[in-house]
Write a protein that binds this DNA or RNA. Structure first.
Lengths: 205, 205
DNA sequence: TTGACATGTGACCGTTTGTTCACTATACTG
DNA sequence: CAGTATAGTGAACAAACGGTCACATGTCAA
């Protein structure tokens, strides 16, 4: 009940900050939710802002080690249906994993006030998704599954609408089922549009 | 210099709230920026929260009267290039109009704390855009400009990526030019994908 | 046992917060 | 002219804020 206090503080800070924002969260409420008194917090962090910075450090490290890591790229699907399956699996995780949801909400709230939060938000919401799907689409084109096109543009056109629906889940959790259905519908519409009609031999433009 | 104080307060509240959030904004700083003393504010609003509610009222009314109004729908473009032109005009406005930018930022910050902000955020970021472009795409299909498809799905697939780039401008204004170029590139890629080949398309892209 | 270290406590501090109130100055109205 | 809203002032308020400090524990090594 000693060493993990720091991690418990960080976990609860993520919870509170993602709900009420940094300014809307006070130390007393945070620590009392942990069964502590506010002064005890200062054994683990120098200040409230130090909590924020440590939380950002952790969020950045967590992202770089996971979604942002080029070594953890999912394998290129072997079929169009495989893209749908992969997409829905990733969507299911990112929508239901509490830590990831809270991270996104926190970044939405604080993106305009903290430069590092801003940069991480851009990765979470835009560039990271595109970077992850670009090689996937490149691979699917090489396999003759998708029409030859700019893979980065396709990745952007594919991930941005899905990202918008993930944001909808964050904002209105009661519409999660609807959003997931729309993600799948969009995914199927996308592959219907870009499916390579001919065989699985790659063709030149 | 009397009656418009209320409006000046609201305008500055939008500015401050969209930068620092509701909790991160204090009455003294807000009123002193107007050349007033804090107590003067209470001649016009009962409380800080009353300012917030009035601001939301105004934001909702402004949206319903403008973007959200079905009577202000733009005309159906007569050509594929017309869609690009229309899109870039709307993007240019929504990216550079200060009031609209501040409104989006404020909604991003407060969407998880206030139900009305949440609902307006969904309109601004998702449903409103789709609702606006659905009849446009329907019309362009009727004119034989676009391949027949689900217009609502196309509107969603078209507006969500553009919305993501608009958010990028809000977050990183120094990347505005890059974002605008990407919006145009995406728009042209989109019409290249969905253009009706045999119709009365006037040119190749 | 002793001493050092890490952890938690409760009282306290100075500052900032939103808000109130008696008062003044100006402007319109009968 | 008197009278009455309207708008702004400056001092004061209680509450809440982040943070500090002397002190009380518990643990573990020497």
């Amino acid at each position: 009940m000693a060493k993990d206090t720091k991690e418990r503080i960080l976990a609860l800070a993520l919870d509170k900050f993602s709900q009420n924002g940094y300014d809307g969260t006070n130390i007393r409420e945070l620590t009392s939710s942990l069964g502590l008194v506010k002064s005890a917090l200062y054994r683990h962090f120098d200040s409230k802002e130090a909590i924020w910075n440590a939380l950002l450090d952790e969020m950045i490290a967590y992202y770089e080690a996971g979604f942002g890591s080029s070594e953890h790229l999912p394998p290129v699907p072997d079929s169009l249906e495989g893209l749908v399956t992969l997409t829905m699996g990733m969507a299911d995780f990112t929508i239901h994993d509490e830590k990831v949801v809270k991270t996104r909400k926190l970044l939405s709230i604080e993106q305009f006030r903290d430069e590092r939060a801003r940069d991480l938000a851009t990765k979470h919401f835009l560039t990271g998704l595109t970077a992850m799907f670009t090689p996937l689409f490149q691979g699917m084109m090489d396999k003759g599954l998708l029409l030859r096109d700019d893979p980065a543009m396709l990745a952007f056109a594919y991930t941005a609408p899905i990202s918008a629906l993930i944001h909808l889940c964050d904002r209105e959790p009661e519409r999660t089922d609807e959003a997931i259905q729309r993600i799948e519908a969009f995914s199927r519409h996308f592959i219907r549009t870009y499916a390579c009609q001919g065989g699985n031999t790659d063709e030149t433009i």
